[in-house]
Amino acid sequence: MELSGEFPIKLLCEIMQINRSSFYLWKSKLSNPSRRTKDFINNSALFAEYHIKYPSHGYRWLNAKICLDTGLILSDPYAHKCCKATGIKSTAKHYKYKKPGNPLRTFPNLLLSEMNISGPMQCIVSDMTAFTVHGIYYELTLYMDLWNNEIISHALSSKRGDKMTYINGLTDLIALKNKMNACETILHSDQGSVYSSKKFNDLLPAYGIVHSMSRAGTPTDNAAMEAINGWIKAELFEDLHVTGENNIEKEISDYISFFNEQRPAYSLKYLTPRQYKEYYFQTINVS
């Protein structure tokens, strides 16, 4: 366009080996973009806006989150096109596969039996993840329902190796289990010292909880929980910008609420854990 004011359009088109009509058509589209082009520009800007909020996620998750928040339904290929046009890429780290280790002699790995999980509280997975905020070390123990990926209990401590995060989280889990009148529950964990301790395991049989354990050095045996641990730290610091300037316990609780109620999950066909549970109970009531 800048050269067209200095050189004849015909000469420029000959050099670029295009028809003059193509130039004027392009110029017309530039001045008066089609509705489709305008929509693409607006949608790309929307993806860029959400990427700023949630940089750890890729185009599929962003597309699901936009649909959840705004009701705008776009295909995944179109979402990928929008993200590619704006240079959007997930900032999350990718983890390498590790070779399975030896099984534990005390508690078998029941997840390897290909169990059929058809409802809430049938199988709970647990793990601890650690992070640092303003130089203060924290340990966060999570208990997650494998049926709908809902974090049903958690406990936080700034004390390294604090066993009470596991016990407190388990106590809240037991209270919820009793409230729901759930039958037998499988609790799957790694071979950590607290999970293997007598104090922890003495609580389980009285409440209809059967312990299952991953093989030694095999985080893939608890893949869902390991994946959540990775996403949690990415989202806490890259998306939600947890700084520790406010009460860290409240910030973690707010994140758990976001995770359960506002965060679409790929394994749930991009429903939130809460939505998935609500649809389940609606179906049960109807039938």
Rank of each mutant, 00 (worst) to 15 (best):
M1S: 13
L3N: 08
S4H: 05
L12D: 06
I15Q: 07
N19F: 01
W26N: 09
F40G: 02
N42V: 04
S44R: 11
A45Y: 06
A48R: 10
I52M: 12
P55D: 09
S56V: 04
H57F: 12
G58P: 09
R60V: 11
W61A: 06
D69P: 11
T70R: 15
T70Y: 11
G71K: 13
G71L: 12
D76L: 06
P77N: 11
C83A: 04
T86V: 13
K89P: 00
K89F: 14
T91C: 07
K93M: 12
Y95V: 12
Y95M: 09
K98C: 07
G101D: 11
N102I: 14
R105S: 14
T106I: 14
N109Y: 03
L112R: 10
P120Y: 09
Q122L: 08
I124N: 09
V125R: 03
D127I: 13
M128L: 15
M128Q: 07
A130I: 03
M144N: 07
D145I: 11
I151G: 06
I152F: 01
S157F: 05
K159Q: 14
R160K: 15
D162V: 08
K163L: 05
I167Q: 09
G169W: 03
T171N: 15
A175Y: 05
K179L: 12
E184N: 13
T185E: 04
I186A: 01
G192Y: 04
V194C: 15
Y195S: 03
S196C: 12
S196W: 00
K199F: 06
I209N: 02
V210Y: 03
H211N: 04
D221M: 02
A224N: 04
M225K: 02
E226H: 07
A227F: 03
A227W: 01
I228D: 05
A234Y: 09
F237V: 06
L240I: 06
H241S: 07
T243D: 10
G244S: 00
N246Y: 09
N246C: 02
N247I: 05
I248D: 02
E249H: 10
E249L: 02
K250Q: 13
I252R: 03
D254H: 08
Y266H: 14
S267Q: 12
K269L: 07
Q275C: 02
Y279K: 13
F281K: 07
T283K: 12
T283S: 08
